[in-house]
Nucleic acid binder design. Sequence first.
DNA 1: GCGCTTTCAGTAAGCGCTTTCAGGGTGCTA
DNA 2: TAGCACCCTGAAAGCGCTTACTGAAAGCGC
Lengths: 342, 342
Amino acid sequence: MQPRAHVTLEDVARAADVSLATASRALNGMRVTPQLRDRVLAAAEKLAYTPNAHARALAGASHRTVGVICHDVTDPYFAAIAGGVMRVAGANDLLVMLASTFRDPEREIAYVSMLRAERAPAILLIGSGFEDTRWERALEAELKPYLDGGGRVAVVSRHRSLKVDSVLPENKAGAAAMARALLDLGHRRFAVLSGPRALTTVADRLGGFRDELAKAGVTLDPADIVEAPFTRDGGYGAMSELLTRRSTATCVFALTDVMAIGACAALRDQGLSIPGDISVAGFDDIPIVRDLTPPLTTVALPLQRLGETAMELALTENNGRRRRLLRMGGEVVLRASTAKLV
Amino acid sequence: MQPRAHVTLEDVARAADVSLATASRALNGMRVTPQLRDRVLAAAEKLAYTPNAHARALAGASHRTVGVICHDVTDPYFAAIAGGVMRVAGANDLLVMLASTFRDPEREIAYVSMLRAERAPAILLIGSGFEDTRWERALEAELKPYLDGGGRVAVVSRHRSLKVDSVLPENKAGAAAMARALLDLGHRRFAVLSGPRALTTVADRLGGFRDELAKAGVTLDPADIVEAPFTRDGGYGAMSELLTRRSTATCVFALTDVMAIGACAALRDQGLSIPGDISVAGFDDIPIVRDLTPPLTTVALPLQRLGETAMELALTENNGRRRRLLRMGGEVVLRASTAKLV
DNA sequence: GCGCTTTCAGTAAGCGCTTTCAGGGTGCTA
DNA sequence: TAGCACCCTGAAAGCGCTTACTGAAAGCGC
């Protein structure tokens, strides 16, 4: 016998010989005579009934799937933050819909639109905004009606003009602190492995680093700044490029740990020792970096907490006033990948 | 002015002075007089209209969100597979809903139920099944009606009794190959860092390893098998335990790379050298292991392809006959973490 | 110019559920 | 025993959209 495509509430009601309303109430735990309730539950069980979430959502029941949009789930930085988001979501009995844009602004907007269509109660944007006015406008155009409709939005990282709750990692101050720490170690000649200029995170970290160096009278040679994708291979390529340029830097600052890992691989492949020949520092403090050899000096961000906090912001009312959680992390963690210069 | 909670198709139709049906057709690209279509599109744009996905799904339009359930997104193994899934999904214009069960069987079933309720066109189960009859029954009970209703399911890793399309990594043969490779290096005394016995993956890898050793007349001392969670910290703990037990093993085989990473950290913390004092091997070949020092010997699995293949299986018709893609990966990659015993 | 097909807009019937509203028992008070 | 308040159940009205089906106008051949 070919089973019906979908068992509906009506089937259950008929099997239990009650009305639709009673079946619905029994299934949702509202007041119903125990006898009837048992009949309904038994029928539902026997028919392997699953409510149609769409019908339910359409009929007004609030639903429990929040959307999280990040740049790349395979990047440990986002994975760690997503882990935090999911912890809090799980504790609140929420499903998480995780989407990966692969850093394509268009796709990011498409995802927001999709989530809006799904009437997700909350949308979390994890990851840097783009310094791109056209994109900002489009995103805002998408978000505005969503917010007006009662949707909740929270972002991790800076978005220039978004009027939403934000969790802001200490990118600028953290990079500045790193500059100071590296200067303290005696370094004077630096190279930076940078990411795409269009990301606000890049602007903040690079700016913070450069400005702090400038305060100490150290300037960053433009030839010592290499731009590459925010990936392991991006870091590898950028470091290789730097080596072919015969940079005289004694210390390389990678704007993310993931890039730093690639940089270390490139250096190893060239037979250079870290920190003997050159020091390497990163940013983020993703879990793996303490297991590297040498363990990586970096700027620590409480990644999991970033995610947890964002989710909490999205779950609590903000009464229309945007909240900004600043000063998340930013302490320099000196490990063995950076050496003191004598 | 307080905007309406949600702009509906009716608002658009009214603004464009056409009927609901015409508005719907215009928005969906069906044949409509250009003049009317433009009016509808302009109205939709002006009102920032987004169709309600639930209403649309309910009204019969197929929808484009597939569900992926994995054990832990923060684990690079799953992240890599998920990356593959998303690549194929993206190419087919599908949204991916990624859920993390944190290895809780109950939660896994809850997620399947949820996805079923959402009427997702496909569900992907990434990660080992549990050797637990009760759980299997429950999962099957959930999946059966879904499949009967036209849902598509694909799994990565072995599930004992699920009649669905499967992508099967070479766990057993891979572990056996590793045993042979390690024996060839001259090792005779092994320890294994194992995961939860309830996982089929554990049974396969441990069994394959042990059986192959047995063929060579080498037995695994039960005291040299330590069971711990499939995480970095699990590996760290298991290795520490092994050290306090004063195991005489010359080589440690961790059932996953992630555990191996933890094991290496534990060894380093005890001042032991790899592979000088002890050799370490893992399983999976997650991207990071080649950047470790020393790089890790492991059994290579084409992680991204695993995910891509699973998604492809779910997207193509199987005409009711389950397909099983075997022999995915399983080659031993010898790196510097294992030494030849003289 | 008439009757035919063809084209395209509008009307209305659901999709499966929640929830308001009304009605009919029941138990209590007077 | 009549009257009232309660509590439950059932009928029915949507939620916002898609898609037959209907019907009018326009194009065509003879």
